[in-house]
């Protein structure tokens, strides 16, 4: 049993180091790459601006690069985009009352059907 505990501790330790390293690195390039995959190309059928070579996508990539270089954070960049182009431009729907069903629906569904099945079928 001791061996198991040690393993678990080791695992937690590694995780903490990793999270720390990730947080430190989550600057410029990582933020830039993340942002351009989460912004939709408005003129394309269904692509993000990282994938698209449309002029608007290139402009928006440059804008994101500029904002990242100025030290702006994720929320600022997303806000900047949605103020001008509407929430449609963000691939991640905001966690707002309007999108509540979208975000919580799956977990609610999971809960309801689990409850339904297990209540009905488990041996008492």
């Amino acid at each position: 049993m001791k061996a198991i505990k040690n393993f678990i501790y080791f695992g937690i330790l590694i995780s903490i180091i990793q999270i720390g390293a990730l947080a430190g690195a989550k600057k410029d390039d990582i933020l830039y790459n993340q942002m351009i995959t989460e912004i939709r190309c408005m003129v394309c059928q269904n692509q993000n601006i990282a994938e698209s070579e449309a002029p608007l996508a290139i402009d928006l990539r440059n804008k994101v690069r500029e904002m990242v270089d100025e030290g702006k954070d994720e929320d600022y960049i997303k806000g900047y985009m949605s103020e001008r182009y509407s929430d449609f431009i963000l691939y991640e729907p905001s966690f707002s009352p309007r999108n509540l069903i979208l975000w919580l629906g799956p977990f609610l569904f999971l809960f309801i059907i689990s409850y339904y099945f297990f209540r009905r079928s488990l041996k008492k």
Binding site: M42, V43, L56, D59, L60, K63, R84, Y85, S86
Partner: peptide, 12 residues
């Protein structure tokens, strides 16, 4: 530069 267009959310 297209900055005003960007501020106006111009895409097409």
């Amino acid at each position: 530069t297209g900055q005003l267009g960007l501020d106006l959310g111009v895409y097409g």
